[in-house]
Amino acid sequence: MASTEPVLEVRDLVKHFAVRRSGWFGARAIVHAVDGVSFVLRRAETLAIVGESGSGKSTVGRMIVGLTPPTAGSVHLMGQRIDQLGRRKMRPLRRHLQLIFQDPYASLNPRMTAGRIVGEPLGNFVTESAAERRDRTAALLSRVGLGAQYLDRHPHQFSGGQRQRLGIARAIATRPTVVVCDEPVSALDVSVQAQVINLLVDLQAEFGMSYLFIAHDLGVVEHVSDRTAVMYLGRLVEIAQTRALFRAPQHPYTQALMASVPLPDPTKPRLTLAVEGEVPSAIAPPPGCRFHTRCPHAKPVCRTEVPPLRVIAPGHEAACHLLSG
C-alpha cells in the first residue's frame, strides 16, 4: 500500500511550445501546453492524471521522463533534481524512471526480437553474460504472461495486447521506482484492456513501483488509482483521493467530465448534456479560470483571476473561485 514517502515531485512545471501561425509571415504563437503543474507521487502509489485532449497530461509525463524539456519548473526523483541533468547525467537515473507508451505498435522497434527489446534496458544497466541476460529476459516475458518461446519473435507477430505486455516488460526490467504509464490501455480492445490493467496492478503489488497513470478513461482511472488529478487546458483543476473525487467531484469541470461518461446501463438516466462547447485553443487560453468559457456557474471573477489550488477537505484540493467558501 502507498506510503507517504515522496518518490517523484513536480513543481510549477510549465511547457510552452512555439508554433508558427498560418502563412509565411505569420507571427510566432505560443502553445501553453502545461502551465504551472505541481504534485507529489508517493512510494508504491498510483496517481492518475485525467483530462481530455489538449489538457497537457501527456506533456507532463514526457517532461518527467526527460523526453520534452520543461520551459520552467522542476522535476525531482527521489530527492534529486533531474530536469536539468542533460543526457549523460540523466542516463544512470533512467533505471529508476521508466515509461510505458500508449501505442503498442510504434513503441517497439519492428526489426528487433522480443528478447532484444525487453533486454535492452538490462544491457544498459546490468552487466551479465548473454546467457544470464537471456534467462532474465525469459523470466520477464513469462512474468508479463508471455512464454519464453516468444523470445525470438518480432513485434508484428504479436497482437496489440501482447505488444503492450512487451512494453511493460521493458519498462519493469530494471525494477524502476517510478513508472509513467501514458495511456497504456487506450489503444487496446476492451476485452484485452482488463488483462493489461490487472497485470499492471499485480506488478505494482509485487515490486512496489509508483505509477503516474495518464489516461482519459475515467472508469479505468477509478479502478487503478489511489489518487486522481484532473487537468484542463494545461492546469491542474482538482486533485484528491480517487474514492473521494469520484464520490463528490468539486470542480465544475470534473463534475462535467464525469456526467459526460455514458454509463453501460440502460436503466440509468439518458445522457445529460453536462457542458457546452469544446476545449478552447491552447494558443490563446482564456484568462482567469480556463474553464470559465464553458462553466455553467462562471462569475465575473472567474474571467479575470486565476483560481489557485486550495485545500477544500483533507487531501482534496480544487482550483475554483466558487469553492472558496
Partner: peptide, 25 residues
C-alpha cells in the same frame, strides 16, 4: 518515433540508439 524514445528512456547511449534503432531502419 516512440520506439526510439523508448530506447532513450531505457537508458541506451546515443551510439547504441544509432546502431540498433536508426541504422537498420
Amino acid at each position: 518515433l516512440p520506439f526510439v524514445e523508448g530506447a532513450i528512456v531505457s537508458g541506451s547511449t546515443l551510439p547504441a540508439i544509432l546502431w540498433r534503432h536508426i541504422l537498420p531502419n
